[in-house]
Lab assay of single mutants.
Amino acid sequence: QLWTVEEQKKLEQLLIKYPPEEVESRRWQKIADELGNRTAKQVASRVQKYFIKLTKAGIPVPGR
């Protein structure tokens, strides 16, 4: 299922709330739990694509 604008905005906020961890899967699980309707795997996939998009555009990656 496609990500809504609201989900993307919340994801961006949660990336700041939950900074990078030694075991990133824990971070994705915390974010997924707060989103409520996404799995950690879906979050990880979305974040990877989002970070690539930001990097290509020369925009700083949130939480890094």
Rank of each mutant, 00 (worst) to 15 (best):
L2S: 07
W3R: 04
T4I: 02
T4N: 06
V5I: 09
E6D: 09
Q8H: 13
Q8T: 09
Q8M: 15
Q8L: 10
Q8P: 01
K9Y: 08
K9V: 07
K9T: 14
K9M: 05
K10D: 04
L11A: 01
L11G: 00
E12G: 07
E12Q: 07
E12D: 11
E12K: 06
Q13S: 11
Q13V: 07
Q13T: 12
Q13G: 14
Q13W: 12
Q13H: 06
Q13D: 11
L14I: 00
L14Y: 03
L14S: 03
L14K: 01
L14D: 00
L15D: 01
L15V: 06
L15E: 00
L15Y: 01
I16A: 15
I16L: 10
I16H: 08
K17W: 03
K17F: 02
K17M: 10
K17Q: 08
K17C: 04
K17Y: 04
Y18E: 01
Y18K: 00
Y18Q: 00
Y18H: 08
Y18D: 01
P19W: 04
P19Q: 13
P19S: 06
P19H: 04
P20S: 15
P20H: 13
P20F: 06
P20D: 14
E21F: 02
E21Q: 06
E21L: 03
E22S: 09
E22L: 09
E22W: 04
E22N: 08
E22P: 14
V23I: 08
V23N: 10
E24Y: 04
E24V: 07
S25G: 13
S25R: 09
S25N: 10
S25P: 09
S25E: 15
R26H: 15
R26T: 13
R26A: 14
R26F: 11
R26Y: 09
R27G: 02
R27M: 03
W28F: 09
W28A: 02
W28K: 02
W28P: 00
Q29P: 00
Q29V: 10
Q29T: 10
Q29M: 08
K30H: 03
K30D: 02
I31F: 03
I31C: 03
I31N: 00
I31E: 01
A32I: 01
A32C: 03
D33V: 07
E34D: 05
L35Y: 03
L35E: 01
L35N: 00
G36D: 14
G36E: 10
G36L: 05
G36P: 10
N37A: 08
N37W: 08
R38M: 08
R38L: 07
T39W: 02
T39Q: 02
T39S: 11
A40E: 08
A40F: 04
A40H: 03
A40C: 09
K41W: 10
K41I: 10
K41D: 12
K41F: 06
K41Q: 12
K41G: 12
Q42E: 14
Q42D: 15
Q42M: 08
Q42L: 02
Q42A: 10
Q42I: 02
Q42T: 03
V43K: 00
V43R: 00
V43L: 02
A44F: 12
A44H: 12
A44C: 11
A44D: 04
A44W: 07
A44N: 04
A44R: 10
A44P: 01
R46P: 00
R46F: 13
R46W: 10
V47R: 00
V47N: 01
V47Q: 02
V47M: 06
V47C: 12
V47F: 04
V47K: 00
Q48H: 13
Q48C: 06
Q48I: 06
Q48N: 08
K49M: 05
K49F: 03
K49P: 07
K49C: 06
K49G: 11
Y50P: 11
Y50T: 15
Y50D: 08
F51I: 10
I52T: 15
I52F: 15
I52Y: 15
I52C: 14
I52W: 10
I52G: 15
K53M: 06
K53P: 14
K53W: 05
K53G: 14
T55C: 07
T55D: 11
K56Q: 12
K56A: 11
A57R: 12
A57W: 05
A57F: 11
A57S: 12
A57D: 12
A57G: 12
G58F: 04
G58V: 07
G58I: 06
G58R: 08
G58W: 03
I59S: 13
I59N: 14
I59Y: 08
P60N: 12
P60A: 13
P60F: 05
P60Y: 04
P60V: 06
V61N: 12
V61K: 12
V61Y: 07
V61Q: 15
V61C: 15
P62D: 15
P62N: 14
P62Q: 14
P62C: 11
P62M: 06
R64E: 15
R64C: 08
R64M: 13
R64Y: 09
